[in-house]
Amino acid sequence: MSTNGQVAKAAYRPRPDSSQQGIDRRAFGLGLAGLAGTALFPLPAIAARSEVRFGLTPVFLDSDIRLIADLEAYLGARLARPVTLVKRRTYMEITALLVAGQIDAAWICGLPFIRHRDALRLVAAPVYRGAPHYRSLIITRSDTGFEEVEDLRGTIHAFSDPQSNSGKLVTQAFLAEKGETVSDFFADTFYAYGHRNVIRAVASGLAQSGSVENYVWEVMRDIEPDLIARTRVLRRSEAMGFPPVAASLQADPALVDALREALLAMPEDDRGQHILKTLRLDGFARVPSDHYDQIAGTWRMVHGAG
């Protein structure tokens, strides 16, 4: 999973002040949700449309009007076209819109990307703490006596989304490696459709454990320390490719390039810096498609096991 250090190194320029300043949690959530796609190709479905439609998924927080406005304004200025952010509840909805060319680009999870790689074009990957990587966590309540994943047998587990890599696939693969299936190992599971929701479900006791990505959990540790304090990490996965921004094949290639340049140039723009600060990202980097091969391997392993 190490991956494309070369690509990351070549494309990513760290921005020293991008980090730990206080941000609004709702703004942060919406920001993550928002980076999801732009139509770039002048194909029939979208050629006649002058506005750019960018898809967002609720990665872990609710929408924030201010961040949406900032993002629309930034991308609109950089692309010299009006930009509309499209929000949906699940990854699948956004992915479907993206694959069908209903939206130009979207910030999606790595799993939908590798499953629809033929219909998508990789634009860029966020850089978090110096690299375009993240991890999957299995968390539980702080006051439980669980010490390892095996202790969770027969309990209720919260997943983030059926199409989430860190929010389901990694845990599913971990169990598969042990010859277990989710349905047999856990007494019950449900989807919270958002990493923050998974954290809330675990903290409240609705689920005894949950699968989330480390980026969300760590950022929320600063934003909502009381909530995070009620949870603890039971398992941390190896590093994987950070959820990318992908474009529809039907999008204008020039628009895709312009979008990539806009994302990569964020650290150099005041408004872009503000957005990155809100999202607690260092910036965006150009990454090759095989940056997500590990997720594809995991998918194949689980699919084979299942």
């Binding site: 019950d188 006791g205 689920a207």
Partner: peptide, 12 residues
């Protein structure tokens, strides 16, 4: 199905 305090009334 759900409770505002899942610790007092757990799911299922």
């Amino acid at each position: 199905l759900a409770a505002s305090d899942p610790l007092r009334f757990p799911m299922n």
